[in-house]
Design a protein around this nucleic acid. Structure first.
Lengths: 392, 392
DNA sequence: AGTTGTTTGTAAGGACGGTTGCCTAACAAA
DNA sequence: TTTGTTAGGCAACCGTCCTTACAAACAACT
C-alpha cells in the first residue's frame, strides 16, 4: 500500500450543527403528536402510539402534559364495535389558543386577522399604510397587531407576519425597499412591544407555507409564485422553506424572461421593457399585475387571451429549469384569478411540459392557489403554528 | 366573536416524521464531535466542549467511546504556553478505517479506489464494463468492489457508489438506462454480497457531495453540474442533497436550452438538434462533451471560442432561474477543463449575472471543480462518511 | 521556593425521557 | 360464563446529559 495522492484539504466552513439534549427529543415527540392530531384529527392514545412508534406509556405521558396545557381535550369514547376496551379520543382543541396573522404584501393596506388553531379566520382588521415607511410603517403594523390582540377571545399563541423583502430566520428584515426597512429586527421589536412570540417571514414564503399546510400539496417539492405589484416565490422542500445563501431564495421577479434578441412572443409582448431594477425584460415586466393589466387594456377577448398566453409561455420558460433542477411536484400561482387562471396558466403548463423531461413534467402540477385571498394570512398563521408548536 | 370563515381543511398527506429517542441525541452529538475533528483538526476535550456547547463531562464520555472504537486517538499534550493545565489533543485517526469508492459515470470503465478517512486515495482499480448491462453489469461492479476490498489494509467503513440514473435514498436504482437497470435494489444487493454497508447515489449527487465537503464551498447553496456524455446536476442545500419528488432532482440535461424560434446564438450553434430523449434543443445537445467536440471540430481558435461562448450563454440562461430561485452561492462545473474552463465558463457567468438580480448575482460563483478527475470518487467516499459517521 | 489563579479532565449524584413488564378495565365472540 | 383482545396506568430500569466537586498541571506573581 502506497499513498497515491495527497489528501484533499477540507476547506469548507463548518456546517452549523447544534447539540441535542433529551429535552429536544421530548419536544420533537410532542410536536409529532400535535402534528398527527392536527392533520389526521382526533385519535385514541393507543392509535397515537401505533402511528408514532412510541409506546403507549410515553404517549400517555405526552398527552397528559398536552391536556394540562389545554392544547388537547378528551372527546369521549370511541364507539366503533371493535373488540376490546374502547379508547378515549384525544383531539387538538382548536379553541385553546388564537393566532394573530398579518400580511404586508399590499402596498396600500395592512391586512390582519385572528385565527384559531384550525386555521379558521375569526376576526379581520386592516389599517391604511400607504406612504408610511421606516419607523412609521412599524408603528402602523404595531397598531394593527395591538388591535388584533385586543380582539382575541383566547390566549394568543403568537403573531405571524408576512412581509415583502429579504428576511432572515430570526425575523430580521434585511431589506424591504417599499417600506424603507433595512436591517430591521422586526420580530424582536414587535415581540418586545407586544410581549408575545412574533415570527416574521417573506410574504411569498408564508404563502408557500400556507399552501403546503392547507393547500393540499401532494408531493415533495412545492413552489408558490405570488403575483401582485411584483413577483415573488417561496419554495418548500422536504417540509422546510428554502432560505438561500443570502436569505434571498425565491427572488424570481427579476430573472430575465424576455430577451432582446428573442423573436418568441415578440408580437404580443413587444420589446423587453425597462424594469424598476434597471435591467430589461425581467419577469416582473411581463408577469406583474400592473404589467399584465396594461398589456391587455383595450384588447378584445381573443387579444387578451393571446397576450396572457404569451406571458404564460415566458413563465413556463423561466420555470422549466427550476422545476427540473428540483423535480418539483407542484407549482402554485397566487394572484388575480382572471389574469392567472386561464390562458396564462394553460400556456405556462404546456410550455413547462414541452421544455422538461417527461420524468419531471409528467408529475408536476401547475395550478391556482386553493386558499383564495387569505392564503398569505393562513401562511403567517402557519409560521406561528410551526414556530410555537412544531406543527406544519 | 363570531366565526367569519370556515376552517380550511388540511388535505395534505402527513409529513414523514420519526420518533426521537435519547440514543438519537447521543448519535447526533457523536457526529458533531467527529464533524468537528474532521473539519477543524485535532482538539482537546475542553475545546470540543466549548465548540459543541456540551459539557466537558459529556465530551469526555463521547471521546472515550470514540477512543474505544479506534476512530480517534490521543495525540499528546497541547504545548502552547497558556495558563492552566495543558489539554490532551484528540484527533480523528485517518488510518482507523478505509473506504471503498466506485464511480460508474464512465460508460466504458468502472473506476474505483480505496480511500482513508481523510479522503486520500490509497489505491486505484478499474474494470472494463463497456457493453455490459443488467445483472452482468452488477457482476462487473461487484468484482471491482471485491478487488478493492481485498486491497484494503484496514477495516472497511463501507462502500460508496456513484452511478448515473435515478436513485432513491435507500440506494435503489429506479432507472439507469445506459446500464439497463430498472428498479434494482443495488445497495441492498451489494451489501448482502460484500457483507459491508453500501451507499449508492446518483453520480452528480456524489460529485456535489464531494465538492461540498472538499471543494471549499463557501456559502449555503451549491449546484454541481457534471458534463460528460450527458449533463447532470447535484444540488446541496443546507448541507443536504436535494432529492426531488421522484428522486429526479438535478435532471437538467433535458431542459430546453435552444429554442426553435430563438435567434440568439443561431449562427454558432445552428438549429436545435434532436436529442436522445426525442425532443429538440435539450441542454445536452449543446453542452455534452460529444456535442461540444463535434461543434468545435475543424474550427480555428477564435471559432472554437465563439462556439464555446455560445454554449456558455445557453447554460447561463438555463442556470439563471435556478440560481435566482435558490439564491445559490456556488455553481461548479465538472468535466473537461479545455472545454468548460475558458470562454464557456466566462460567457455562462456573464450571462448569469446579466439575467439575475444583483443581490443574487453578486454573491454567486461559477467555477471549475477543484477536485479534478476523482471528484466523483471523493464524493462516493463522502457518501460513506456521511452514512456511517454522520460526517459531511 | 511558595502561593495563587486558571485550565483540564474525571467522578458522583440528580434530572429527564423513554422502554419493558405487569396490572386492571372494558368489550366481543364463543 | 369464559376466553381473547384492546386500552390505559403503574413501577422498575436503562441511557443520556447536567451540575457539582475534586485532583492534576501549569503560569505568574510574591
Amino acid at each position: 500500500m502506497t499513498a497515491v495522492a495527497d489528501p484533499p484539504q477540507p476547506r469548507r466552513a463548518l456546517r452549523s450543527t447544534a447539540k441535542v439534549l433529551p429535552e429536544h427529543a421530548r419536544a420533537s415527540n410532542r410536536s409529532m403528536v400535535l402534528q398527527l392530531l392536527f392533520h389526521a384529527g382526533p385519535r385514541s392514545r393507543a392509535e397515537l402510539a401505533r402511528a408514532t412508534g412510541l409506546t403507549r406509556v410515553t404517549i400517555s405521558d405526552l398527552v397528559a402534559s398536552l391536556l394540562a396545557q389545554g392544547l388537547v381535550t378528551e372527546l369521549g369514547q370511541q364507539a366503533d364495535g371493535k373488540v376490546g376496551k374502547p379508547g378515549t379520543l384525544v383531539g387538538l382543541d382548536a379553541e385553546a389558543f388564537q393566532i394573530v396573522a398579518v400580511d404586508l404584501a399590499d402596498d396600500e393596506r395592512v391586512h390582519g386577522a385572528v385565527l384559531d388553531l384550525s386555521g379558521a379566520v375569526r376576526e379581520r382588521r386592516t389599517a391604511p399604510v400607504g406612504g408610511c415607511t421606516g419607523a412609521a410603517a412599524v408603528e402602523v403594523l404595531l397598531g394593527l397587531c395591538r388591535e388584533l390582540v385586543a380582539a382575541t377571545t383566547r390566549p394568543v399563541l403568537g403573531v405571524g407576519v408576512g412581509s415583502p423583502g429579504v428576511i432572515d430566520l430570526s425575523g430580521r428584515v434585511l431589506q424591504a425597499p417599499n417600506r424603507g426597512w433595512y436591517d430591521l429586527p422586526l420580530a424582536e421589536q414587535l415581540s418586545a412591544a407586544l410581549e408575545l412570540p412574533v415570527h416574521v417571514a417573506n410574504d411569498a414564503d408564508t404563502a408557500a407555507l400556507g399552501e403546503f399546510t392547507w393547500g393540499g400539496a401532494s408531493g415533495n417539492g412545492l413552489l408558490v409564485l405570488t403575483v401582485g405589484g411584483g413577483v415573488g416565490a417561496g419554495i418548500v422542500l422536504d417540509g422546510a422553506l428554502v432560505q438561500g445563501n443570502e436569505h434571498a431564495a425565491g427572488e424570481l421577479g427579476h430573472v430575465t424572461a424576455l430577451d432582446e434578441r428573442d423573436e418568441h412572443d415578440r408580437a404580443p409582448l413587444g420589446r423587453p421593457e425597462l424594469c424598476a431594477c434597471g435591467r430589461r425584460g425581467c419577469l416582473e415586466t411581463v408577469l406583474s399585475v400592473p404589467a399584465m393589466r396594461r398589456r391587455i387594456a383595450g384588447l378584445d377577448a381573443a387579444g387578451r387571451n393571446d397576450a396572457l398566453a404569451s406571458v404564460g409561455r415566458r413563465l413556463g420558460i423561466v420555470l422549466a429549469p427550476v422545476v427540473s433542477a428540483l423535480n418539483l411536484s407542484e407549482v402554485v400561482l397566487c394572484g388575480p384569478e382572471e389574469l392567472l387562471g386561464g390562458p396564462l396558466r394553460d400556456a405556462a403548463l404546456a410550455t413547462l411540459r414541452e421544455r422538461t423531461i417527461p420524468v419531471v413534467s409528467s408529475h408536476v402540477q401547475l395550478r391556482m392557489t386553493s386558499l383564495g385571498e387569505h392564503g398569505a394570512l393562513s401562511g403567517a398563521a402557519v409560521l406561528v403554528l410551526s414556530g410555537q408548536l412544531g406543527v406544519t
